[in-house]
Design a protein around this nucleic acid. Structure first.
Length: 562
RNA sequence: GCGCCCAUAGCUCAGCUGGAUAGAGCAUCGGAUUUCUAAUCCGAAGGUCCCAGGUUCGAGUCCUGGUGGGCGUGCCA
């Protein structure tokens, strides 16, 4: 696909005298696929020459030397439409997928290190649906950049430090710690946290006690530290269970606490740069009208989130030598990251312009009846239940001997993950159980279904891959459209990386699955005559491979039967 | 007040760096299964792309100004 485009751009550049990059910007896909496979609008050229674009397109069609791989050029009004040599295109595309397998669409190894900071839940707070977006988007981006050949460092910057810990501590002091045999100790800790923060409304001493606890923790007080260790371990155990269930992983769990002993260094840095100042008893850096005052040390001496992020990025730069660091954090914190960049610039840090905030919109409407956020585990369990029910009651045909429980778990997760990653990051989402856990239409299960169907063909159609792929045996339009979509995988992956948008891949995969489903109505493998049978099978296998590669980039493990 | 983000079909959303008749899914209506999985496919219906100007041969897309909503705006993270 890419080579065809490049050679067409060169040919057009020669024929028109326009610079190739400009031509490249004009060549695009025709809106209506019936028009052709690539299109060149002649307006700009017509304007330059003071000619009629319709006549110009006609003249250009006669002039241009059709590059290899193209079968036809035809002017349609002011557009010049090009058609591929379809058979050759199918042959080339299917062949390269079969040859490259899991590496189809991948990039060459390079040295641009990408650090991805994602998930980063707060300790001693429930891991709820609100944490899902950062977790899934970050994990997907990590996989995408790794696929493109980058060394990737995935970091869970746990919120395991800060005043909120004080409230958990106060709560445990008042109402006791969860019992050792408590099956869900984190729930108990959350309960203490919620009760303590509620109590603070009427009893100001609670807030004071919480702050005092955090001060002691930062100062290295042994008792405070012991409680912190306990709460962190309990929380992390549960987080790791959720990550394991989702199939999400990290290279490091260096949370905010990890940087506690690096605070002095940061503050000294700022001091040395001579940009720090005292304001209302607190200490920080003034960043001007737009970014305001960046607080780095509270009046009571305790540090803040920003201080710890400053330490973290410096540490990451020293340790990983990153080319970029991606912060997959909600849009409400965009000011925070602008401040972080500005601070780094003021401090003369070489990485100040390599900070990328990858923001995402708010999630609304995910509260339970009781007002708390829905725990992620509850969502996963519900997804599992619904998938099981759908499998047993709604699905009309299904394979024999399925491990229904295992399939339901996979389908449920696919639905949840895809639902989140299929929309653009920045928009606020209104969480809706029925939409998130729908298994029909544009959903994760739809993609899985396409993948499983091809597996079914492989298992039952008694077809084998041909010795040589031959696209001329696949003259149907559906075959070409499917191959064309397979050939666009590169573009989708690169667009996703360039825009930090996994949804680019999600949208691509929907189109791919749709093209497959259409082709699957027409191109039967089982009863096809020898010679055609193998070619159709090869096309579908290439599709399955592409689906699998794309699904994995979203963090969804393709399933073989459903 | 100031700053950032969002606004496209009844609902949820796509729309490559401006290009041809604005696309999917859900919901509604109508079809398709003796044939590799109907969690599927085909069709119908559904639109002042929030409003008003501007730039351009051409604007859902870019600019300006509004309207509506969300978020942020120093001692939380």
């Amino acid at each position: 696909m890419q080579e065809l485009r490049t050679s067409l751009v060169e040919a057009l550049a020669r024929a028109t005298g326009l610079p190739a990059p400009q031509v490249d910007g004009m060549v695009g896909l025709p809106k209506n696929p019936a028009h052709g496979d690539l299109a060149f609008p002649c307006f700009a050229l017509a304007k330059r020459d003071g000619k009629n674009p319709v006549e110009l397109a006609r003249a250009l069609a006669d002039d241009i030397a059709l590059p290899d791989g193209f079968a036809a050029v035809e002017p349609t009004g002011p557009f010049l439409n090009f058609r591929f040599d379809r058979a050759a295109f199918i042959t080339r595309t299917v062949q390269s997928v079969l040859e490259q397998g899991d590496r189809y669409g991948a990039g060459a190894p390079n040295d641009d290190v990408v650090v991805v900071d994602y998930s980063s839940p707060n300790i001693a707070k429930p891991f709820h649906i609100g944490h899902l977006r950062s977790t899934l988007i970050g994990w997907s981006l990590a996989k995408i950049f790794r696929f493109l050949g980058h060394p990737v460092v995935g970091i869970n910057h746990l919120g395991d430090w800060g005043t909120q810990f004080g409230y958990v501590w106060v709560g445990c002091e008042r109402w006791g710690r969860p019992a050792d045999d408590d099956p869900d100790p984190i729930l108990a800790l959350v309960d203490r946290y919620v009760r303590a923060t509620k109590l603070k409304e009427e009893d100001p001493s609670v807030e004071e006690a919480a702050r005092d606890y955090f001060r002691r923790l930062e100062a290295g007080d042994a008792d405070a530290r012991a409680f912190w260790d306990y709460a962190r371990t309990v929380s992390l155990d549960e987080f790791k269970a959720v990550y394991a269930r989702l199939g999400v992983a990290f290279d490091h769990y260096t949370g905010e606490a990890f940087f506690n002993d690096k605070m002095d260094g940061v503050l000294a840095d700022v001091e040395a740069a001579g940009v720090g100042e005292v304001s209302d008893g607190a200490w920080g850096v003034s960043l001007g009208d737009d970014l305001g005052f960046a607080l780095l040390k509270k009046a009571d001496g305790a540090t803040l989130y920003l201080t710890r992020d400053l330490a973290a990025i410096d540490y990451r730069h020293r340790t990983f030598g990153f080319d970029r660091v991606l912060y997959v954090v909600g849009a409400p914190q965009s000011l925070h990251f602008k401040q972080l960049s500005a601070l780094c610039e003021k401090l003369g840090k070489p990485y100040h312009d390599r900070i990328v905030h990858v923001p995402f919109g708010h999630v609304h409407g995910m509260s339970t009846r009781s007002g708390g956020a829905v725990p992620l585990v509850a969502l996963l369990d519900e997804a599992h239940e619904r998938a099981l029910r759908a499998l047993r009651e709604e699905v009309t045909k299904r394979p024999e001997g399925l491990d229904e429980d295992a399939v339901a778990e996979q389908i449920g997760k696919s639905a949840i993950i895809f639902n989140d990653l299929s929309r653009g990051r920045i928009k606020d989402v209104h969480f809706d159980w029925d939409a998130a856990l729908s298994f029909r239409g544009d959903t994760g299960p739809y993609l899985q279904y396409a993948h499983a169907r091809i597996n079914g063909i492989a298992a039952r159609a008694e077809a084998e891959l041909p010795d040589a792929v031959d696209g001329s045996r696949l003259p149907e339009d559906e075959a070409f459209q499917l191959a064309a979509q397979i050939g666009r995988f590169h573009d989708a992956v690169r667009k996703a990386a360039a825009t930090y948008e996994p949804s680019a891949i999600a949208a691509y995969l929907l189109d791919l699955a749709r093209q497959f489903s259409r082709a699957n109505e027409v191109l039967r493998v089982k009863d096809a005559e020898a010679g055609i049978k193998e070619q159709r099978f090869a096309l579908f296998v290439a599709c399955r491979q592409t689906l699998a590669n794309g699904l994995r980039l979203l963090g969804i493990e393709p399933i073989d039967r459903m």
